[in-house]
Nucleic acid binder design. Structure first.
Lengths: 225, 225
DNA sequence: AATCATCTTTACAAAATCTTTATATTAACG
DNA sequence: CGTTAATATAAAGATTTTGTAAAGATGATT
């Protein structure tokens, strides 16, 4: 469940193979390129979270590719290179590389350095907040506000509301809701659903008798708007 | 003018001297510490933009100091160590180090790696002190005050409070809290949590019966406001 | 060995939540 | 329009979860 994508740009097939196996067994999604040109295209078409770049490419200097990438690509780039001269390392880092590993590198160290750059740069992306008119649900903090006033929900109420909101517009059947919230052995307890929907409406609707958010689809289920 | 502050934590005076000269001639502002304790205090009192940390300190393992620093310090930490085993490198990186250089290191490379971490970390001048109304928590010194009066907390109580405060607003599940504070083998000991939450409330809340800071989310966990 | 602070466990009280029941209201359909 | 099925609501009860005090255990320090 890592979901971090890595693009390997290296001309040596055995190294690509080794890296791919290593990374995939650590739940990274891997794509490959064997030349600078291929790498640039791949990065542009499907920007990965991280690029592993070999400096010794056949068609173009890795340094030049790095410079080209850095004109628009802001995610981490880690250099993997047989060159271990200070000149090469300094040049690569100053051209925007986030790290530089000398081949042959140790697998564990590579993975640790990957985790390090992922930690510092990849994770700051999403704000898991959903707004619906007066209503706001924050998945990160597990809070609900109505007109900026906190609404106190029980765990079950929150789960039910979150499920409805995540499927905004869709009708969720009684069957489905019961299964998701209470589990597969509660499929016949449709009274639960009525009780909890009523409680939710009391808490989040302006007028619980004329619900604007939680809509009843008689005979089928409920829908959130 | 660079204006970037660097704290060197290293017990060997000659290395501190060499680093200081190197860094100052590149317009960094340098401060020094010769022991883990000194380093922790220095970092807490005047949080630097970057910490250069030697793992071989006399009074405490550099790894342990790294862990303590990372409880509140979010700026880059670069390890300088004579140890070059993969185990050490991986451990340090996973404990939150941003880079790891093996001594003896090349000056140009160190400077390039410094430039690299400066470039990527937006220098958010973050204080190691968190204020919440009447409550103040100092991550550097591990102390808590309520209306400027020191509150005496045990290690476990402090850890629990610090974890809650670091995730202010978020609900932390019982599962998560137990795992973080007591370790993965204590996941079923939810009574611990109740006892320690009660103790914390007695110490930091104005009225422990009506907690304003540590909020119970029944069936889920606790939240700090 | 005695002391002290802290952690762990136990027992019970209090509170919150869930479940069930009863009954009212609304929608579907001929 | 009236009947039937589905849905809504309130409130009582049962159950689970949480809070608290206090006793026992541990382990470091003297």
């Amino acid at each position: 469940m890592n979901n971090v994508t890595v693009l390997i740009i290296d001309d040596e097939a055995p190294i690509r193979k080794l890296l791919t196996i290593t990374l995939e067994s650590n739940e990274y999604k891997v794509s490959q390129a064997a030349t600078a040109h291929e790498g640039l295209m791949a990065a542009a078409n499907h920007p990965p979270h991280i690029i592993l770049l070999d400096l010794g490419l056949p068609d173009e200097s890795g340094h030049d590719l790095l410079i080209k990438l850095r004109q628009w690509y802001t995610n981490p780039i880690i250099i993997l290179s047989a060159q271990s001269t200070e000149h090469d390392i300094v040049k690569a880092l100053d051209n925007g590389a986030n790290d530089y590993l000398v081949k042959p590198f140790r697998t564990g160290e590579l993975l640790a350095r990957l985790r390090s750059v992922v930690r510092t740069s990849v994770n700051n992306d999403e704000s898991p907040i959903i707004n619906c008119n007066d209503l706001q649900l924050n998945f990160g903090t597990r809070t609900v506000t109505k007109n900026n006033i906190a609404v106190k929900l029980t765990a079950t109420e929150y789960n039910l509301l979150a499920l409805l909101i995540k499927n905004e517009g869709k009708v969720l059947t009684h069957h489905y809701l019961l299964k998701q919230i209470w589990g597969p052995s509660y499929l016949s307890q449709s009274q639960y659903l009525r009780v909890f929907i009523a409680q939710l409406r009391k808490k989040i609707e302006v007028d619980a008798n004329k619900p604007l958010h939680i809509i009843t689809e008689s005979g089928v289920g409920y829908r959130f708007i």
